[in-house]
Design a protein around this nucleic acid. Sequence first.
DNA 1: ACCTGAACACCGTTCAAGT
DNA 2: ACCTGAACACCGTTCAAGT
Lengths: 243, 243
Amino acid sequence: MAGKRDSHPRSVWLTSKPARKRRESESAAGAGNLDREKIIATAVRLLDAKGEAQFSMRLLAAELNVTPMSLYWYVSNKDDLLELALDSVIGEIRLPKINVRSDWRKDLRALAGAWRHTLVAHPWAIRCYGEYLNIGPQSMGFTQRSQEVMARSSLSKEDQLVALSAVFQYVYGFASTESRWLEYGRKTGSTVDEFVAEVAASVSGIPGAQGGLLERRSTQTMKELRDRDFDRALDWLIAGMLA
Amino acid sequence: MAGKRDSHPRSVWLTSKPARKRRESESAAGAGNLDREKIIATAVRLLDAKGEAQFSMRLLAAELNVTPMSLYWYVSNKDDLLELALDSVIGEIRLPKINVRSDWRKDLRALAGAWRHTLVAHPWAIRCYGEYLNIGPQSMGFTQRSQEVMARSSLSKEDQLVALSAVFQYVYGFASTESRWLEYGRKTGSTVDEFVAEVAASVSGIPGAQGGLLERRSTQTMKELRDRDFDRALDWLIAGMLA
DNA sequence: ACCTGAACACCGTTCAAGT
DNA sequence: ACCTGAACACCGTTCAAGT
Protein backbone atom coordinates (compact mmCIF):
# COMPACT_ATOMS: atom_id res chain seq x y z
CA MET A 1 0.00 0.00 0.00
CA ALA A 2 1.13 3.55 0.63
CA GLY A 3 2.62 4.24 -2.65
CA LYS A 4 -0.08 3.27 -5.05
CA ARG A 5 2.62 3.89 -7.54
CA ASP A 6 5.78 3.23 -5.57
CA SER A 7 6.83 -0.34 -5.10
CA HIS A 8 9.13 0.39 -2.20
CA PRO A 9 7.13 2.82 -0.10
CA ARG A 10 8.60 5.18 2.39
CA SER A 11 6.60 7.65 4.35
CA VAL A 12 7.40 11.32 3.74
CA TRP A 13 8.20 11.44 7.40
CA LEU A 14 10.87 8.81 7.05
CA THR A 15 12.86 10.37 4.23
CA SER A 16 16.48 10.94 5.18
CA LYS A 17 16.45 14.58 4.24
CA PRO A 18 13.82 15.53 6.83
CA ALA A 19 12.17 18.04 4.56
CA ARG A 20 13.25 20.16 1.69
CA LYS A 21 15.40 22.89 3.14
CA ARG A 22 13.19 25.92 3.49
CA ARG A 23 14.56 28.84 1.68
CA GLU A 24 15.94 31.60 3.87
CA SER A 25 14.33 34.38 1.94
CA GLU A 26 10.83 33.75 3.18
CA SER A 27 10.13 37.45 3.07
CA ALA A 28 6.82 38.68 1.77
CA ALA A 29 7.60 37.53 -1.70
CA GLY A 30 5.04 37.88 -4.46
CA ALA A 31 1.76 36.37 -3.40
CA GLY A 32 1.80 34.16 -6.46
CA ASN A 33 4.95 32.34 -5.47
CA LEU A 34 4.88 28.65 -4.81
CA ASP A 35 5.87 27.04 -1.58
CA ARG A 36 5.20 23.80 0.19
CA GLU A 37 2.54 25.11 2.53
CA LYS A 38 0.62 26.76 -0.26
CA ILE A 39 0.70 23.59 -2.32
CA ILE A 40 -0.56 21.52 0.59
CA ALA A 41 -3.29 24.00 1.46
CA THR A 42 -4.48 24.15 -2.12
CA ALA A 43 -4.42 20.37 -2.34
CA VAL A 44 -6.61 20.11 0.75
CA ARG A 45 -9.02 22.63 -0.68
CA LEU A 46 -9.27 20.80 -3.99
CA LEU A 47 -9.60 17.41 -2.33
CA ASP A 48 -12.45 18.74 -0.22
CA ALA A 49 -14.15 20.41 -3.14
CA LYS A 50 -13.77 17.83 -5.89
CA GLY A 51 -13.10 14.61 -4.05
CA GLU A 52 -10.05 12.44 -4.30
CA ALA A 53 -11.17 10.85 -7.56
CA GLN A 54 -11.13 14.14 -9.41
CA PHE A 55 -7.98 15.39 -7.74
CA SER A 56 -4.80 15.15 -9.79
CA MET A 57 -1.37 16.67 -9.85
CA ARG A 58 -2.30 18.27 -13.12
CA LEU A 59 -5.43 19.83 -11.70
CA LEU A 60 -3.55 21.08 -8.68
CA ALA A 61 -0.89 22.63 -10.90
CA ALA A 62 -3.53 24.34 -13.00
CA GLU A 63 -5.15 25.73 -9.88
CA LEU A 64 -1.78 27.17 -8.89
CA ASN A 65 -1.20 28.57 -12.38
CA VAL A 66 1.85 26.49 -12.84
CA THR A 67 3.13 23.53 -14.80
CA PRO A 68 2.50 20.08 -13.30
CA MET A 69 6.20 19.45 -13.02
CA SER A 70 6.77 22.48 -10.83
CA LEU A 71 5.11 20.61 -7.99
CA TYR A 72 7.79 17.99 -8.04
CA TRP A 73 10.29 20.53 -6.87
CA TYR A 74 8.42 20.69 -3.56
CA VAL A 75 7.07 17.18 -3.10
CA SER A 76 8.63 14.02 -4.40
CA ASN A 77 5.38 12.44 -5.59
CA LYS A 78 1.63 12.36 -5.20
CA ASP A 79 1.68 9.94 -2.30
CA ASP A 80 3.94 12.22 -0.32
CA LEU A 81 1.67 15.14 -1.06
CA LEU A 82 -1.38 13.24 0.14
CA GLU A 83 0.46 12.22 3.28
CA LEU A 84 1.33 15.84 3.92
CA ALA A 85 -2.24 16.93 3.24
CA LEU A 86 -3.49 14.29 5.66
CA ASP A 87 -1.24 15.48 8.46
CA SER A 88 -2.33 19.01 7.79
CA VAL A 89 -6.02 18.24 8.34
CA ILE A 90 -5.14 16.26 11.47
CA GLY A 91 -3.78 19.57 12.67
CA GLU A 92 -7.26 21.04 12.37
CA ILE A 93 -8.63 18.77 15.07
CA ARG A 94 -9.74 20.83 18.01
CA LEU A 95 -7.91 19.40 20.98
CA PRO A 96 -9.70 19.68 24.30
CA LYS A 97 -8.02 21.79 26.93
CA ILE A 98 -6.38 19.46 29.39
CA ASN A 99 -7.95 20.27 32.71
CA VAL A 100 -6.49 18.29 35.56
CA ARG A 101 -9.68 18.52 37.53
CA SER A 102 -12.02 17.47 34.77
CA ASP A 103 -13.03 13.89 34.10
CA TRP A 104 -10.54 12.26 31.73
CA ARG A 105 -13.41 10.32 30.17
CA LYS A 106 -14.98 13.58 29.13
CA ASP A 107 -11.73 14.60 27.46
CA LEU A 108 -11.42 11.25 25.74
CA ARG A 109 -14.94 11.56 24.37
CA ALA A 110 -14.10 15.07 23.20
CA LEU A 111 -11.01 13.81 21.40
CA ALA A 112 -12.96 11.02 19.76
CA GLY A 113 -15.71 13.39 18.72
CA ALA A 114 -13.29 15.95 17.32
CA TRP A 115 -11.50 13.29 15.36
CA ARG A 116 -14.75 11.93 13.99
CA HIS A 117 -15.77 15.43 12.98
CA THR A 118 -12.54 16.09 11.11
CA LEU A 119 -12.57 12.75 9.32
CA VAL A 120 -16.14 13.17 8.14
CA ALA A 121 -15.36 16.71 7.00
CA HIS A 122 -12.59 15.36 4.73
CA PRO A 123 -13.72 12.05 3.24
CA TRP A 124 -10.50 11.63 1.27
CA ALA A 125 -8.57 11.80 4.54
CA ILE A 126 -10.26 8.62 5.71
CA ARG A 127 -8.86 6.66 2.81
CA CYS A 128 -5.44 8.25 3.31
CA TYR A 129 -5.53 7.45 6.99
CA GLY A 130 -6.10 3.83 6.09
CA GLU A 131 -3.19 3.81 3.70
CA TYR A 132 -0.37 5.80 5.20
CA LEU A 133 1.59 5.61 8.37
CA ASN A 134 0.28 8.40 10.49
CA ILE A 135 3.37 9.75 12.06
CA GLY A 136 3.48 13.35 10.88
CA PRO A 137 4.00 16.15 13.39
CA GLN A 138 0.30 16.94 13.72
CA SER A 139 -0.56 13.29 14.06
CA MET A 140 2.07 12.84 16.74
CA GLY A 141 0.78 15.87 18.56
CA PHE A 142 -2.70 14.47 18.54
CA THR A 143 -1.47 11.11 19.79
CA GLN A 144 0.51 12.76 22.53
CA ARG A 145 -2.44 14.76 23.75
CA SER A 146 -4.51 11.59 23.74
CA GLN A 147 -1.92 9.84 25.84
CA GLU A 148 -1.93 12.69 28.31
CA VAL A 149 -5.66 12.27 28.66
CA MET A 150 -5.36 8.53 29.22
CA ALA A 151 -2.58 9.07 31.73
CA ARG A 152 -5.15 10.52 34.11
CA SER A 153 -7.13 7.29 34.06
CA SER A 154 -6.70 4.45 36.51
CA LEU A 155 -5.55 2.08 33.78
CA SER A 156 -2.07 0.61 33.67
CA LYS A 157 0.39 2.20 31.29
CA GLU A 158 0.01 -0.68 28.87
CA ASP A 159 -3.78 -0.73 29.07
CA GLN A 160 -3.81 2.97 28.31
CA LEU A 161 -2.22 2.24 24.94
CA VAL A 162 -4.53 -0.67 24.21
CA ALA A 163 -7.55 1.39 25.17
CA LEU A 164 -6.48 4.35 23.09
CA SER A 165 -5.95 2.20 20.04
CA ALA A 166 -9.31 0.54 20.51
CA VAL A 167 -11.12 3.84 20.84
CA PHE A 168 -9.60 5.28 17.72
CA GLN A 169 -10.08 2.11 15.76
CA TYR A 170 -13.73 2.24 16.63
CA VAL A 171 -13.97 5.92 15.73
CA TYR A 172 -12.20 5.27 12.46
CA GLY A 173 -14.62 2.51 11.56
CA PHE A 174 -17.57 4.63 12.56
CA ALA A 175 -16.42 7.66 10.60
CA SER A 176 -15.70 5.49 7.60
CA THR A 177 -19.22 4.11 7.57
CA GLU A 178 -20.76 7.48 8.26
CA SER A 179 -18.79 9.17 5.52
CA ARG A 180 -19.62 6.44 3.04
CA TRP A 181 -23.35 6.97 3.42
CA LEU A 182 -23.01 10.72 3.41
CA GLU A 183 -21.03 10.60 0.19
CA TYR A 184 -23.48 8.27 -1.51
CA GLY A 185 -26.31 10.51 -0.47
CA ARG A 186 -24.50 13.58 -1.68
CA LYS A 187 -23.58 12.06 -5.01
CA THR A 188 -27.07 10.81 -5.69
CA GLY A 189 -28.43 14.22 -4.77
CA SER A 190 -30.61 12.99 -1.93
CA THR A 191 -30.47 13.27 1.81
CA VAL A 192 -28.95 10.35 3.68
CA ASP A 193 -32.37 9.49 5.03
CA GLU A 194 -33.80 9.26 1.56
CA PHE A 195 -30.88 7.28 0.21
CA VAL A 196 -30.94 4.77 3.05
CA ALA A 197 -34.67 4.31 2.58
CA GLU A 198 -34.16 3.75 -1.11
CA VAL A 199 -31.44 1.17 -0.55
CA ALA A 200 -33.46 -0.56 2.15
CA ALA A 201 -36.42 -0.81 -0.18
CA SER A 202 -34.31 -2.12 -2.99
CA VAL A 203 -32.55 -4.65 -0.80
CA SER A 204 -35.71 -5.89 0.84
CA GLY A 205 -36.73 -7.16 -2.56
CA ILE A 206 -34.07 -9.82 -2.29
CA PRO A 207 -35.58 -13.00 -0.87
CA GLY A 208 -34.35 -14.01 2.56
CA ALA A 209 -32.78 -10.65 3.33
CA GLN A 210 -34.41 -8.59 5.99
CA GLY A 211 -33.71 -4.90 6.22
CA GLY A 212 -31.35 -5.45 9.09
CA LEU A 213 -28.97 -2.63 9.76
CA LEU A 214 -30.77 -0.43 7.27
CA GLU A 215 -34.08 -0.70 9.05
CA ARG A 216 -35.64 2.54 10.06
CA ARG A 217 -35.40 2.50 13.81
CA SER A 218 -37.46 5.46 14.83
CA THR A 219 -38.82 8.77 13.69
CA GLN A 220 -35.59 10.49 14.58
CA THR A 221 -33.41 11.75 11.82
CA MET A 222 -30.37 9.74 10.79
CA LYS A 223 -28.09 12.44 12.12
CA GLU A 224 -29.58 12.17 15.58
CA LEU A 225 -29.39 8.41 15.50
CA ARG A 226 -25.77 8.46 14.35
CA ASP A 227 -24.77 10.86 17.11
CA ARG A 228 -26.47 8.76 19.70
CA ASP A 229 -25.03 5.49 18.41
CA PHE A 230 -21.57 7.00 18.33
CA ASP A 231 -21.77 8.08 21.95
CA ARG A 232 -23.34 4.90 23.18
CA ALA A 233 -20.71 2.52 21.82
CA LEU A 234 -18.00 4.85 23.04
CA ASP A 235 -19.55 4.71 26.49
CA TRP A 236 -19.71 0.92 26.30
CA LEU A 237 -16.05 0.74 25.42
CA ILE A 238 -15.04 3.08 28.22
CA ALA A 239 -17.24 1.30 30.71
CA GLY A 240 -15.80 -2.01 29.65
CA MET A 241 -12.19 -0.96 30.03
CA LEU A 242 -12.86 0.27 33.55
CA ALA A 243 -14.72 -2.82 34.69
CA MET B 1 -17.00 7.96 -3.27
CA ALA B 2 -17.74 4.59 -4.83
CA GLY B 3 -17.24 5.38 -8.38
CA LYS B 4 -13.75 6.76 -8.46
CA ARG B 5 -14.61 7.39 -12.03
CA ASP B 6 -18.36 7.65 -12.02
CA SER B 7 -19.90 10.92 -10.96
CA HIS B 8 -23.31 9.43 -10.26
CA PRO B 9 -22.50 6.23 -8.46
CA ARG B 10 -24.84 3.31 -8.19
CA SER B 11 -23.94 0.09 -6.51
CA VAL B 12 -23.89 -3.00 -8.71
CA TRP B 13 -26.49 -4.35 -6.40
CA LEU B 14 -28.83 -1.49 -7.16
CA THR B 15 -28.81 -1.69 -10.94
CA SER B 16 -32.27 -2.14 -12.39
CA LYS B 17 -31.31 -5.17 -14.45
CA PRO B 18 -30.42 -7.28 -11.40
CA ALA B 19 -27.57 -9.04 -13.13
CA ARG B 20 -26.69 -9.81 -16.65
CA LYS B 21 -28.98 -12.56 -17.75
CA ARG B 22 -27.08 -15.78 -17.33
CA ARG B 23 -26.92 -17.67 -20.52
CA GLU B 24 -29.00 -20.81 -20.61
CA SER B 25 -26.33 -22.90 -22.19
CA GLU B 26 -24.15 -23.17 -19.14
CA SER B 27 -23.15 -26.62 -20.19
CA ALA B 28 -19.55 -27.70 -19.87
CA ALA B 29 -18.43 -25.28 -22.49
CA GLY B 30 -14.77 -24.93 -23.33
CA ALA B 31 -12.76 -24.33 -20.18
CA GLY B 32 -11.29 -21.21 -21.71
CA ASN B 33 -14.62 -19.44 -22.00
CA LEU B 34 -15.29 -16.27 -20.13
CA ASP B 35 -18.02 -15.82 -17.60
CA ARG B 36 -18.77 -13.54 -14.73
CA GLU B 37 -17.67 -15.90 -11.99
CA LYS B 38 -14.38 -16.63 -13.68
CA ILE B 39 -13.69 -12.94 -14.15
CA ILE B 40 -14.41 -12.21 -10.51
CA ALA B 41 -12.34 -15.14 -9.27
CA THR B 42 -9.40 -14.11 -11.42
CA ALA B 43 -9.74 -10.51 -10.26
CA VAL B 44 -9.60 -11.63 -6.63
CA ARG B 45 -6.53 -13.73 -7.34
CA LEU B 46 -4.75 -10.86 -9.07
CA LEU B 47 -5.74 -8.34 -6.39
CA ASP B 48 -4.35 -10.64 -3.74
CA ALA B 49 -1.17 -11.35 -5.65
CA LYS B 50 -0.29 -7.93 -7.03
CA GLY B 51 -2.18 -5.53 -4.82
CA GLU B 52 -4.84 -3.09 -5.87
CA ALA B 53 -2.33 -0.56 -7.19
CA GLN B 54 -1.01 -2.95 -9.81
CA PHE B 55 -4.40 -4.35 -10.68
CA SER B 56 -6.00 -3.06 -13.86
CA MET B 57 -8.67 -4.07 -16.30
CA ARG B 58 -5.97 -4.47 -18.88
CA LEU B 59 -3.94 -6.76 -16.66
CA LEU B 60 -7.00 -8.81 -15.83
CA ALA B 61 -7.86 -9.14 -19.49
CA ALA B 62 -4.33 -10.25 -20.31
CA GLU B 63 -4.50 -12.85 -17.55
CA LEU B 64 -7.69 -14.17 -19.12
CA ASN B 65 -6.15 -14.14 -22.61
CA VAL B 66 -8.68 -11.73 -23.84
CA THR B 67 -9.03 -8.13 -24.96
CA PRO B 68 -9.69 -5.54 -22.23
CA MET B 69 -12.99 -4.64 -23.78
CA SER B 70 -14.32 -8.18 -23.51
CA LEU B 71 -14.65 -7.67 -19.79
CA TYR B 72 -17.16 -4.92 -20.31
CA TRP B 73 -19.59 -7.41 -21.67
CA TYR B 74 -19.79 -8.96 -18.20
CA VAL B 75 -19.29 -6.01 -15.87
CA SER B 76 -20.23 -2.45 -16.55
CA ASN B 77 -17.06 -0.92 -15.14
CA LYS B 78 -14.13 -1.40 -12.82
CA ASP B 79 -16.01 -0.20 -9.75
CA ASP B 80 -18.71 -2.77 -10.27
CA LEU B 81 -16.10 -5.46 -10.68
CA LEU B 82 -14.40 -4.48 -7.42
CA GLU B 83 -17.73 -4.46 -5.66
CA LEU B 84 -18.41 -7.95 -6.95
CA ALA B 85 -14.94 -9.09 -5.93
CA LEU B 86 -15.48 -7.67 -2.46
CA ASP B 87 -18.74 -9.52 -1.96
CA SER B 88 -17.09 -12.68 -3.16
CA VAL B 89 -14.38 -12.56 -0.47
CA ILE B 90 -17.01 -11.75 2.14
CA GLY B 91 -18.44 -15.10 1.14
CA GLU B 92 -15.20 -16.73 2.26
CA ILE B 93 -15.76 -15.76 5.87
CA ARG B 94 -16.20 -18.83 7.98
CA LEU B 95 -19.47 -18.39 9.77
CA PRO B 96 -19.74 -20.03 13.17
CA LYS B 97 -22.32 -22.73 13.51
CA ILE B 98 -25.28 -21.30 15.33
CA ASN B 99 -25.65 -23.39 18.43
CA VAL B 100 -28.62 -22.41 20.51
CA ARG B 101 -27.01 -23.68 23.66
CA SER B 102 -23.66 -21.99 23.21
CA ASP B 103 -22.85 -18.54 24.53
CA TRP B 104 -23.82 -15.91 21.96
CA ARG B 105 -20.80 -13.86 22.98
CA LYS B 106 -18.58 -16.68 21.88
CA ASP B 107 -20.29 -16.67 18.49
CA LEU B 108 -19.98 -12.92 18.22
CA ARG B 109 -16.28 -13.11 18.95
CA ALA B 110 -15.97 -15.85 16.35
CA LEU B 111 -17.72 -13.69 13.76
CA ALA B 112 -15.51 -10.73 14.57
CA GLY B 113 -12.38 -12.87 14.40
CA ALA B 114 -13.38 -14.47 11.12
CA TRP B 115 -14.12 -11.10 9.62
CA ARG B 116 -10.80 -9.71 10.79
CA HIS B 117 -9.04 -12.70 9.31
CA THR B 118 -10.65 -12.30 5.92
CA LEU B 119 -10.03 -8.55 5.76
CA VAL B 120 -6.37 -8.90 6.64
CA ALA B 121 -6.03 -11.69 4.08
CA HIS B 122 -7.26 -9.33 1.34
CA PRO B 123 -5.88 -5.84 1.99
CA TRP B 124 -7.57 -4.39 -1.08
CA ALA B 125 -10.92 -5.52 0.31
CA ILE B 126 -10.47 -3.18 3.25
CA ARG B 127 -10.31 -0.17 0.99
CA CYS B 128 -13.25 -1.43 -1.04
CA TYR B 129 -15.25 -2.02 2.10
CA GLY B 130 -14.68 1.60 3.03
CA GLU B 131 -15.82 2.78 -0.35
CA TYR B 132 -18.78 0.71 -1.45
CA LEU B 133 -22.15 -0.03 0.01
CA ASN B 134 -21.87 -3.53 1.32
CA ILE B 135 -25.16 -5.00 0.36
CA GLY B 136 -24.22 -7.88 -1.89
CA PRO B 137 -25.70 -11.33 -1.25
CA GLN B 138 -22.69 -12.59 0.70
CA SER B 139 -22.58 -9.43 2.73
CA MET B 140 -26.25 -9.67 3.52
CA GLY B 141 -25.82 -13.29 4.51
CA PHE B 142 -23.06 -12.37 6.88
CA THR B 143 -25.12 -9.56 8.39
CA GLN B 144 -28.07 -11.84 8.81
CA ARG B 145 -26.05 -14.46 10.61
CA SER B 146 -24.65 -11.75 12.85
CA GLN B 147 -28.14 -10.60 13.69
CA GLU B 148 -29.15 -14.13 14.55
CA VAL B 149 -26.27 -14.27 16.98
CA MET B 150 -27.22 -10.97 18.59
CA ALA B 151 -30.83 -12.06 18.83
CA ARG B 152 -29.80 -14.54 21.50
CA SER B 153 -28.47 -11.74 23.69
CA SER B 154 -30.47 -9.95 26.35
CA LEU B 155 -30.22 -6.65 24.50
CA SER B 156 -33.22 -4.86 23.07
CA LYS B 157 -33.83 -5.20 19.36
CA GLU B 158 -32.53 -1.72 18.75
CA ASP B 159 -29.47 -2.16 20.92
CA GLN B 160 -28.65 -5.32 19.06
CA LEU B 161 -28.24 -3.27 15.91
CA VAL B 162 -26.22 -0.56 17.62
CA ALA B 163 -23.99 -3.15 19.24
CA LEU B 164 -23.44 -5.04 16.02
CA SER B 165 -22.48 -1.88 14.17
CA ALA B 166 -20.11 -0.89 16.93
CA VAL B 167 -18.40 -4.25 16.99
CA PHE B 168 -17.84 -4.32 13.26
CA GLN B 169 -16.74 -0.72 13.14
CA TYR B 170 -14.15 -1.56 15.73
CA VAL B 171 -13.05 -4.67 13.86
CA TYR B 172 -12.85 -2.70 10.64
CA GLY B 173 -10.63 -0.09 12.24
CA PHE B 174 -8.50 -2.74 13.84
CA ALA B 175 -8.06 -4.72 10.64
CA SER B 176 -7.28 -1.54 8.74
CA THR B 177 -4.47 -0.64 11.11
CA GLU B 178 -3.19 -4.18 11.25
CA SER B 179 -3.18 -4.54 7.51
CA ARG B 180 -1.45 -1.21 7.03
CA TRP B 181 1.52 -2.24 9.13
CA LEU B 182 1.65 -5.69 7.60
CA GLU B 183 1.71 -4.19 4.12
CA TYR B 184 4.42 -1.70 4.97
CA GLY B 185 6.46 -4.46 6.49
CA ARG B 186 5.95 -6.67 3.49
CA LYS B 187 6.80 -3.97 1.00
CA THR B 188 9.96 -2.93 2.81
CA GLY B 189 10.98 -6.55 3.03
CA SER B 190 11.12 -6.68 6.81
CA THR B 191 9.04 -8.26 9.49
CA VAL B 192 6.42 -6.06 11.13
CA ASP B 193 8.46 -6.13 14.32
CA GLU B 194 11.50 -4.82 12.51
CA PHE B 195 9.57 -2.19 10.64
CA VAL B 196 7.80 -0.88 13.71
CA ALA B 197 11.12 -0.70 15.55
CA GLU B 198 12.62 1.20 12.66
CA VAL B 199 9.77 3.69 12.54
CA ALA B 200 9.80 4.10 16.30
CA ALA B 201 13.51 4.84 16.23
CA SER B 202 13.09 7.30 13.41
CA VAL B 203 10.17 9.04 15.03
CA SER B 204 11.79 9.27 18.44
CA GLY B 205 14.33 11.55 16.86
CA ILE B 206 11.66 14.20 16.58
CA PRO B 207 11.80 16.48 19.60
CA GLY B 208 8.80 16.32 21.91
CA ALA B 209 7.48 13.10 20.45
CA GLN B 210 7.64 10.06 22.62
CA GLY B 211 7.36 6.62 21.10
CA GLY B 212 3.78 6.37 22.21
CA LEU B 213 1.75 3.76 20.44
CA LEU B 214 4.83 2.43 18.73
CA GLU B 215 6.62 1.68 21.96
CA ARG B 216 7.76 -1.85 22.42
CA ARG B 217 5.51 -3.13 25.15
CA SER B 218 7.03 -6.47 25.98
CA THR B 219 9.13 -9.26 24.65
CA GLN B 220 6.12 -10.81 22.98
CA THR B 221 5.94 -10.77 19.23
CA MET B 222 3.73 -8.21 17.55
CA LYS B 223 1.42 -10.94 16.35
CA GLU B 224 0.78 -12.11 19.90
CA LEU B 225 0.22 -8.57 21.09
CA ARG B 226 -2.17 -7.83 18.25
CA ASP B 227 -4.23 -10.91 18.93
CA ARG B 228 -4.42 -10.08 22.60
CA ASP B 229 -5.30 -6.43 22.01
CA PHE B 230 -7.98 -7.43 19.54
CA ASP B 231 -9.64 -9.75 22.01
CA ARG B 232 -9.33 -7.41 24.95
CA ALA B 233 -11.05 -4.44 23.35
CA LEU B 234 -13.72 -6.75 22.00
CA ASP B 235 -14.30 -8.02 25.51
CA TRP B 236 -14.49 -4.46 26.81
CA LEU B 237 -17.09 -3.57 24.22
CA ILE B 238 -19.18 -6.64 24.97
CA ALA B 239 -18.88 -6.12 28.71
CA GLY B 240 -19.88 -2.51 28.30
CA MET B 241 -22.97 -3.22 26.28
CA LEU B 242 -24.18 -5.70 28.88
CA ALA B 243 -23.58 -3.44 31.86
C1' DA C 1 17.09 27.85 -7.19
C1' DC C 2 13.15 27.25 -9.49
C1' DC C 3 10.25 26.22 -13.47
C1' DT C 4 9.08 24.32 -18.19
C1' DG C 5 8.22 21.20 -22.68
C1' DA C 6 8.22 17.21 -24.57
C1' DA C 7 7.83 12.60 -23.97
C1' DC C 8 7.03 7.84 -21.82
C1' DA C 9 4.34 4.40 -20.13
C1' DC C 10 0.49 3.77 -18.54
C1' DC C 11 -4.91 4.14 -17.28
C1' DG C 12 -10.59 3.28 -17.93
C1' DT C 13 -13.82 3.46 -21.29
C1' DT C 14 -16.67 4.54 -25.88
C1' DC C 15 -17.94 3.27 -30.17
C1' DA C 16 -18.35 1.10 -34.37
C1' DA C 17 -17.31 -3.05 -36.31
C1' DG C 18 -16.55 -7.87 -36.70
C1' DT C 19 -18.17 -13.04 -36.21
C1' DA D 1 -24.34 -13.30 -28.19
C1' DC D 2 -19.88 -12.37 -27.64
C1' DC D 3 -15.44 -10.31 -28.73
C1' DT D 4 -12.13 -6.98 -31.03
C1' DG D 5 -9.32 -2.57 -32.86
C1' DA D 6 -8.75 1.81 -32.86
C1' DA D 7 -9.23 5.84 -30.54
C1' DC D 8 -10.23 9.35 -26.73
C1' DA D 9 -9.25 11.64 -22.79
C1' DC D 10 -6.96 11.22 -19.28
C1' DC D 11 -3.09 9.83 -15.57
C1' DG D 12 1.92 10.26 -12.71
C1' DT D 13 6.45 10.94 -13.59
C1' DT D 14 11.39 11.25 -15.94
C1' DC D 15 14.62 13.86 -18.07
C1' DA D 16 16.95 17.34 -20.27
C1' DA D 17 16.66 22.00 -20.83
C1' DG D 18 15.74 26.68 -19.81
C1' DT D 19 16.26 31.15 -16.73
